[in-house]
């Protein structure tokens, strides 16, 4: 970049003028004020703290009324006043410095670092979106591939089993065993695939998926999903975050909390989706935040620009609140 281009660029940048204004203010108005505050505080503190010494060393001149104070004995009180002055001036200097910082931040605008931070966040968002897309692809591949093949295998074993006569003892046992085994594998695979990306979430949206999950809970679940219940849909990463947060909360409540009721509520204020999951159990889930479950969900919320709040004091109740800034897609 040539010198001229550089100068033009600098002259055009708002930042240049802001910095100039800040420098001018500092060089003219601000420094006398700040000097007065600092010097005044120091002098007053020194004069009061060391009042008796000053009067003793330089009687008459340096401290007005020093003679009078000395004779009345009040001079011995000034160090005490000095302590108060030190404390007060410390606050005063702090306030002035704070004001100066505020002025600097206001004039200089956001620092370049924040720009970088924004870029990093958006690349994390892209990663999450990619991650969601991958999960759906894996779910679909498993559904179209392994699950169908395994099902066909199991069906053939079932057919073979039907053809065998009771006379064929050992063979029958083997085939029956293989058939039962294949059914267990099918079940396991189904659970696995559901955990990767629940089908009903894609097909029916978050309210139906929550209802579906709630149906598997031993602890009764009360839902008040507000706008979600009327079919509002959100971007995949948002719906996934809500689903898996609820899933984790439900699992924890069923496993550890001894709760008798779980309440899940959702709301959307036009800018932000809030989902709250509460149980009346024994609490203590906060310590689990260090674990992978809640931490992973908190990270996910963070990437979406939202947050996951957990309150679970010992003795309960436990409350998880997920807040994600988002706008609904077409319902």
């Amino acid at each position: 970049m040539g010198l001229r281009a550089w100068v033009t660029a600098r002259l055009r940048a708002r930042r240049t003028w802001q910095e100039l204004a800040y420098a001018l203010l500092g060089a003219t108005l601000l420094w006398p004020v700040e000097l007065a505050v600092v010097a005044g505080s120091l002098m007053l503190a020194g004069a009061t703290l060391f009042g008796p010494v000053i009067v003793l060393v330089a009687p008459g001149a340096s401290v007005p009324a020093g003679e009078t104070l000395w004779r009345s004995g009040w001079i011995w009180v000034t160090p005490l006043v000095g302590v108060g002055v030190v404390v007060a001036s410390a606050y005063l200097v702090g306030v002035v410095a704070g004001l100066r910082g505020l002025l600097a931040r206001t004039l200089m605008g956001p620092y370049e670092g924040e720009q970088r931070l924004h870029e990093v966040t958006s690349s994390r968002v892209r990663l999450v979106e990619r991650f969601e897309a991958d999960k759906r692809r894996i779910e679909r591949d498993l559904h179209d591939g392994a699950q169908q093949r395994l099902l066909t295998l199991s069906l053939r074993l079932g057919m073979a089993r039907q053809l065998l006569s009771p006379a064929e003892g050992e063979l029958r046992e083997l085939i029956e065993g293989a058939h039962e085994e294949s059914k267990l594998v099918l079940q396991e695979l189904r659970d696995l695939v559901q955990g990767i990306h629940p089908r009903v979430l894609t097909d029916r949206g978050i309210a139906a998926a929550i209802a579906e999950l709630a149906g598997t809970s031993v602890v009764p679940v009360k839902t008040a999903l507000g706008p979600l219940a009327s079919g509002l849909r959100f971007a995949d990463p948002v719906e996934s975050a809500v689903y898996f947060t609820f899933s984790e909360a439900l699992a924890n409540a069923n496993r550890h909390s001894q709760a008798e009721l779980i309440v899940v509520e959702a709301g959307h204020d036009g800018e932000r989706l809030t989902v709250t999951i509460r149980d009346d159990g024994v609490g203590g889930a906060e310590s689990a935040v260090g674990g992978t479950g809640l931490q992973g969900l908190a990270d996910r919320a963070d990437i979406l620009g939202g947050r996951l709040l957990v309150s679970s004091p010992p003795g309960g109740p436990t409350e998880l609140r997920l807040e994600v800034p988002c706008r609904p897609c077409a319902s």
Partner: peptide
């Protein structure tokens, strides 16, 4: 559930 078809009868 699809799995149930494997119990043929």
């Amino acid at each position: 559930l699809k799995d149930r078809v494997t119990d043929v009868s």
